[in-house]
Structures are given as C-alpha cells and as structure tokens.
C-alpha cells in the first residue's frame, strides 16, 4: 500500500500554513486517499490500479494547494479576539439596545425618578424601564456563553457581559468632567 502521508506531504510542499494546520490537512487528505484505496481494493481492483484510481482523484495538485490555502486563510480571518470578545460584545450591545428601543415604543410606561421641590418643575432625573432591566440577565448570560464557548479569558467574558453599559458609562463620565 502506498504511503499516502508521504505522497500528500511531498505534493503539498509549498503550502504556507502553520505546522499544526499543515499536518492536519495532510492527515485528512491522506486518510481520504487511504479510504478510497481500500474501497477500490474491496471492489476487486489490483493494488496498482487502486492506487492509480486514488491518484486520479486529484487532477491538479497545485490547484488543490491553492484552494486549501484560500480556505484556511479565510478561517483564520476571524481571529480569537473577534470570537471571544467583539462578537459577543457587539451582540449583547445590539440586543440590549434593540430591546430598549422596542420597549420604549411598545412597552409599558417607564418608572420615572424625579426630584420634587414644592410645585417647581423638575425634569425627571432617571427613567427606568423595568421590563428592560428584567431582560438583561438573559442577554448577559448569552454574552458569557458565547465568549466562553470561544475559549475567552475571564477578562474577555466579563467585558462581553457588561459591554452594553460601557457607552452609557462613557456619557456619564463626560458629564462628570
């Protein structure tokens, strides 16, 4: 039986990937060729014919190398930071702000916190949307789940959870200055 690993390794020699990714690709492809070879042998092909049949599956090794390279590069575009922090954070921000907007339009009246000073007119100092607050634990849980699933560090997970309040916090920070 041909040494498929050696054959694939020599054909994909110029594959510009990290060593572990390259080894993974070679192993997968060699396993596929091995399966095809065994299948052909079971069908009654002689060893040399079966090997020829396998080799005919790959018409152009250079083209295959280029396609593998492109596919792997696209996978790597989504870096760990995007998966562990930016994606969960932006999703929690989008969901919480979207939900707030919906509750403001369709939901019940908010609870207004106002300062009373005789009969003077005082603008409400805070408007609290209780249904929004009640929905936030679910959104926080989702952010934590996504960040954890992507292998995020504790810092990345907590940042993803509280990310929706960071823009509001910065507005208040500006107000204090």
């Amino acid at each position: 039986m041909p040494d498929w690993q050696a054959l694939v390794r020599s054909q994909l020699d110029g594959l510009a990937l990290k060593p572990h990714e390259r080894a993974e690709v070679i192993e997968e492809l060699a396993a596929h060729l091995d399966e095809t070879f065994e299948g052909a042998r079971r069908q009654g092909f002689a060893e040399q014919d079966a090997a020829q049949r396998c080799l005919s599956e790959v018409k152009d090794w250079r083209d295959l190398r280029r396609r593998i390279q492109t596919a792997r590069t696209m996978e790597n575009i989504m870096t760990n930071r995007v998966k562990q922090f930016w994606l969960p954070s932006l999703l929690t921000l989008l969901l919480s702000m979207g939900l707030l907007a919906l509750i403001q339009i369709f939901g019940p009246n908010p609870w207004m916190v106002a300062r009373h000073s005789g009969w003077s007119l005082v603008a409400p100092v805070a408007v609290v949307y209780i249904p929004w607050l009640l929905s936030l634990p679910l959104i926080g849980a989702m952010g934590a789940y996504l960040s954890n699933r992507a292998g995020g560090s504790q810092r990345a997970v907590f940042s993803s959870i509280v990310f929706p309040v960071l823009p509001i916090w910065s507005f208040f920070w500006l107000g204090f200055l």
């Binding site: 929690t92 919480s96 607050l133 009640l134 936030l136 634990p137 679910l138 959104i139 926080g140 849980a141 989702m142 952010g143 934590a144 789940y145 954890n148 504790q154 997970v157 907590f158 993803s160 959870i161 509280v162 929706p164 309040v165």
Partner: peptide
C-alpha cells in the same frame, strides 16, 4: 448588575 446577574452564573 442585571447583565452580570445573568452572565456570572454562566461564567
């Protein structure tokens, strides 16, 4: 606090 109340148990 509400966000953390949901996220902390998952963490």
């Amino acid at each position: 606090a509400a966000l953390l109340a949901g996220g902390f148990p998952i963490q």
